[in-house]
Design a protein around this nucleic acid. Sequence first.
DNA 1: GTCGTATCATCAGTGTACTGTCTATATGGT
DNA 2: ACCATATAGACAGTACACTGATGATACGAC
Lengths: 177, 177
Amino acid sequence: MTSTKRNSANIKPGALYGMPGHLIRRCHQIAVALFFEECGAFEITPQQYAVLSVLADNDGVDQITLAGLAALNRTTAGEIVDRMVSAGLLERRDNLLDRRVKNIFLTKPSLKLLSDVHEAVVRVQHRLLQPLGSAERETFIELLARIASENNELSRAPLRAVPKRQRKSTARSVEGG
Amino acid sequence: MTSTKRNSANIKPGALYGMPGHLIRRCHQIAVALFFEECGAFEITPQQYAVLSVLADNDGVDQITLAGLAALNRTTAGEIVDRMVSAGLLERRDNLLDRRVKNIFLTKPSLKLLSDVHEAVVRVQHRLLQPLGSAERETFIELLARIASENNELSRAPLRAVPKRQRKSTARSVEGG
DNA sequence: GTCGTATCATCAGTGTACTGTCTATATGGT
DNA sequence: ACCATATAGACAGTACACTGATGATACGAC
């Protein structure tokens, strides 16, 4: 029979440390720390990288769509875009066909930044999974992906695809290669 | 051979979505959302729960030690303690043997809260892992724990045990059961 | 006993993550 | 044309997550 020791709240001592919620938070902190170690010189945050990455595939989407594609809260996304516009990494343009909408575009510097920073971001992922064997890494990613996708609608900032009808009034800011 | 399509930054489209760093962030958001769904009525946050949980096993530690035990940044921990003191959940007392130190204690209401909220927190963990089979759940927790512990020192808020010599000048605020 | 060094807590500053509310604008039904 | 409803984005407010600096205090070496 296992110990029935209890703490002052009548709960098993140290229960916190085995809870997936707590462990995920700690892993998140580690991932962020590694990101800053590897990418700090580029003056970019993990979320800002996500925004650049999403726009590389979907340049010119509106802010709400961008938030969905990067799994960011709409308000947070707006603030991040603010900072990135100030830093010259994004351009925010009025949509002439729907005057509520602002379309977000990459700039030349951000395209260069994105391709420069890519290697460092890949290193972050490697270092994060360093403690696991290669089969375990695949397993881990698959389990993470299943938890994220199956529980997606429970999130307060769920991942969302680009909606069907997107009205684009403005051209791209950076001419494609 | 796999497609060599590239986006405007010359990176594989959608690469972000398979990165463990991004997936961990999404899982974290889901865990937090579930916490508020299950525990929202208790007017408590996940980090505040962690603080209560840590103090149940280590009542009266100083703020820095508390931060270490809960894997919180020292400044963040101080702010969280502020809010919990205002809410009547904690007591902050001067240490008479080391006047730099403030010792943090649970209060009667927070002990009751902690035992009331425990079931809901357990439900959060169950719902979070719902998409996995029971063997997968154990695997997932084990892999998470290994990543967190092996990379612990890389974190900017690493988990820290209680240091050996802790000077206690003040008695517990809640008489033990 | 004095001094250099370490430590606890706090402060100012920045960035992320939300909720709820508001304004401006669009859209579909009549 | 008119109205109910919905949506995009902004704003205020709260909480967490840090960095770097500072003030008060403790401690070890001498």
